[in-house]
Computed example of a mutant assay.
Amino acid sequence: MSLFTSLAWHLKSGDKKLEQLRSRGLTIGEGCEILNGYDFGSEPYLVTLGNNVRLASGVKITTHDGGVWVLRHLYPELSDVDRFGRVTIGDNCHIGMDAMIMPGVTIGGNCIVGARSVVTHDVPDNTVVAGVPARPIGTIDRYREKHEEEFVNTKHLGFEEKRCFCERAYPA
């Protein structure tokens, strides 16, 4: 991607970005947020995002197995092969920064994928996964229980209000 193309993309509104991704065949539900630096690979039409899915910066979703490159050159009868797998992410999921979702994976509803995780297997509903490869580390209910005392109500605040709150609550 050229510098101009990259800059133009970053300046585009969120709705326009989603519209362009849909035009490439990506299925995107309602209420989704896709932050910058993502990569849907060469087959975005094999990716389905449910409603209220958030992809943090740098999320990569791949729908093909690049390893067949070796087979194509090793076995003449496989010179034209590919291997694909649809990727589906259920409703109300958060995929953390720089996570990678591999071909053929289905992530259930109400899931959290930790930052930099590599998801190689299906993830059941209501599960938190993390690591390389990603493994279940808890449930959504356990995540809430563990962190409930740390939750703060700041989503309604503007930038400066939130900054003042955070600087008071988390002093240097």
Rank of each mutant, 00 (worst) to 15 (best):
L7Q: 12
A8L: 13
A8K: 15
A8G: 08
W9C: 09
W9V: 08
H10G: 00
H10T: 15
H10S: 14
K12P: 04
D15K: 15
K17N: 02
E19A: 12
L21C: 06
R24W: 06
G29L: 09
G29Y: 03
C32W: 02
I34K: 06
G37M: 08
G37Y: 01
D39H: 05
S42F: 11
P44C: 07
Y45H: 15
Y45K: 14
L46R: 10
V47R: 03
T48C: 12
L49M: 13
L49R: 07
V53R: 04
L55F: 03
A56I: 05
A56E: 09
S57P: 04
G58D: 03
V59I: 11
T63E: 01
H64R: 11
D65W: 08
D65M: 02
D65V: 10
V70Q: 09
L71H: 05
L74K: 15
E77W: 05
S79H: 13
D80P: 01
V81D: 00
D82N: 13
R83N: 03
G85R: 08
T88P: 02
I89T: 04
D91H: 12
C93I: 10
D98R: 14
M102S: 15
P103C: 08
P103A: 14
V105D: 03
V105E: 02
I107N: 07
G108Q: 04
G109V: 12
V113L: 02
V113K: 07
V113E: 00
G114A: 02
G114Q: 00
T120K: 12
D122L: 06
D122Q: 09
D122Y: 01
V123M: 01
V123G: 02
P133E: 12
A134P: 08
P136H: 01
P136I: 06
T139H: 01
R142W: 07
R144T: 14
H147R: 14
E148V: 15
E148I: 15
E149S: 15
E150S: 15
E150N: 13
N153R: 13
T154G: 11
H156N: 13
G158K: 11
F159C: 01
R163H: 01
C166K: 00
E167K: 15
R168T: 15
